[in-house]
Design a protein around this nucleic acid. Structure first.
Length: 494
RNA sequence: GGUUCCGUGGCCGAGUGGCUAGGCAAUGGUCUGCAAAACCAUGUACAGCGGUUCGAAUCCGCUCGGAACCUCCA
């Protein structure tokens, strides 16, 4: 049988070309995907969470279609320069001194925090999660190659990429971001240490460490540390090859980070690296950019607990994920308490219908064009990962499920099974939603207790003792349990 | 200031030359002891002003507003 990806070929918006293009992997049937991961020097930002959730969704979809996927997402633990200056200090080293901790202690703490947040959001671990500090050797090797080919120069123990020379010899620094080299030079601020460079647009491949700099490694040029952009070139090449399929990251990385990556790749191997570049869009909070200084900011964990003045309550991570999936990854998404509240209702309605679906019985004929529906769902997903359209189709099925009567759905046995399978695939395997987790033992105990309460209340209702019946319902509602009196008896939801 | 992008009904959010996206909220109805849930019905929205076109929310121009990048940032 043909794999699903040949039935529903993917089209991707390639930000390198600005066009939607048919996705044709370098190697048939497999996908190599590299995503720029977080810098682990502080709590993971909510925007990071959105970006990595978007790529997790794509990862899941590729796998679902039958591709063999290698998903590489790095951890930047070597720190980046705070500015381009000679005495520029590594962010991680700075924070370490402030808190009197070893740099790797900071790295460890925030890496663990990052993993916890992503786990809550039900993001699968990447296939490989390499660290910058673990690949100093590869980075030094790449610098050597670039130097040998004449695309870089040494200056005072540091090594810089020669952007002007690169473009004179046919390089196209600026392809990704649409920037012109002349404009870049004109717009560059005068910073300390610029005199080391031949051109303000040049960027560091290796920086000589100042005596105070804690994170440092020996190299042929100086004791120092790798430049801002090198780790991604080195690690993507190592794990995915000189030519691979997808490179992703947030919009904000487009320039200069990804622009420099392409230049480094071309300089060292003659290839651009990824064929398809993807950029996820930013997040705003109540219509404004997030900013710690104005208090317009929320941490992922605060979103889950509700411990933030901008939130009325906490939201479960699956709701947050659903909220993110309701918007396209390439659009700016605005977070607000109201928007989350609305998403929560929709999320619960969707999962509720999937729960209902389990208990429905098939009928002789089908009244829902299930194959057509499945087709439309896949078509939406394959059209540049359009999760909002998929969700709108899912709600079509929700309406159909909920309008089923007498415990019977208008689907034949096979069609019903198909609907169950696909709803599960789309909602859980691909969108990555999940039921509120509670232990089975817990659930069973609650079910038994609820059966008892419902039975007692049913007796009261038989006797038309409405006061008792209403008190029970009211108290349960206050406790967060909603009773629903239906034709077939009473059920409850949390 | 430069580069790029966006502005959709009460809110969130798809679409992007002619055909109902969807969710939430609201109103009416069905059901119910009453609720809740669910279902049915109801909104002729596309920042403003011009232009192109048989036809524009969708293309072009200007104006206003917002965002990202130009310095580490998903």
């Amino acid at each position: 049988m043909d794999p699903l990806y040949s039935k529903y070929p993917i089209v991707i918006e390639n930000t390198l070309t600005g066009k939607k293009e048919a996705f044709i992997p370098v190697s048939d049937g497999s996908v190599g995907m590299y995503v720029c991961g977080p810098t682990v020097y502080s709590d993971v930002h909510l925007g990071n969470a959105r970006t990595f959730t978007s790529y997790d969704f794509m990862f899941r979809y590729f796998r679902h279609l039958g591709y063999q996927v290698r998903y590489v997402r790095n951890i930047t633990d070597a720190g980046h320069l705070e500015n381009d200056a000679e005495e520029g200090e590594d962010k991680i080293a700075k924070k370490a001194r402030m808190e009197q901790l070893e740099p790797m202690e900071i790295v460890q703490r925030y890496t663990v925090d990052f993993h916890k947040v992503m786990e809550k959001l039900n993001a699968l671990p990447p296939s490989i999660e390499p660290t910058a500090t673990g690949h100093i050797v590869e980075q030094i090797q790449m610098i050597k190659t670039i130097l040998e080919k004449g695309w870089a120069y040494q200056s005072n123990g540091s090594v810089y990429f020669d952007v002007e020379n690169y473009n004179l010899k046919g390089g196209d620094y600026g392809v990704l971001s649409g920037r012109k080299l002349e404009e870049l030079q004109a717009g560059t601020r005068v910073l300390d240490g610029q005199e080391e460079k031949r051109n303000p647009a040049d960027f560091a491949l290796w920086k000589k460490a100042s005596p105070a700099h804690i994170m440092r490694w020996p190299s042929p040029w100086s004791d120092g540390f790798p430049g801002w952009h090198l780790e991604c070139s080195a690690m993507s090449t190592k794990y995915l090859g000189e030519q691979f399929d997808i490179h992703g990251g947030g919009m904000d990385l487009k320039f200069p980070h990804h622009e420099c990556e392409i230049a480094q790749n071309v300089a060292s191997s003659g290839h651009k690296g990824a064929q398809y570049w993807l950029h996820t869009n930013m997040l705003t909070l109540n219509g404004k950019r997030m900013s710690k200084s104005t208090g317009n900011t929320i941490l992922p964990n605060e979103l889950f607990t509700g411990e933030n003045p901008l939130l009325v309550k906490g939201f479960n991570p699956s709701t947050v994920r659903f909220f993110m999936m309701q918007a396209h990854y390439s659009s700016i998404l605005d977070f607000s308490n109201d928007a989350l509240m609305a998403a929560e209702k929709g999320h619960d309605k969707l999962l509720g219908a999937i729960e209902t679906l389990k208990n429905l019985q098939p009928s002789k004929t089908s009244t829902f064009h299930i194959h057509d529906w499945v087709d439309r769902c896949y078509t939406a997903l394959s059209d540049n990962f359009n999760s909002p359209i998929l969700i709108s189709h899912l709600f079509e099925a929700v309406k159909f499920i909920n309008s089923s009567t007498d415990s019977t759905i208008g689907l034949t046995k096979d069609d019903l099974q198909l609907l169950i399978d696909k709803m599960n695939s789309f909602a859980f395997d691909i969108l990555g939603l999940r039921e509120q987790e509670s232990s089975d033992a817990h659930k069973e105990a609650l079910n038994k207790a609820m059966d008892l309460v419902i039975e007692l209340r049913a007796k009261a209702r038989e006797n038309k003792d409405w006061d008792t019946a209403d008190i029970i319902r009211k108290q349960l509602t206050d406790a967060g349990i909603q009773l629903k009196d239906g034709a077939e008896g009473t059920s409850y939801t949390l």
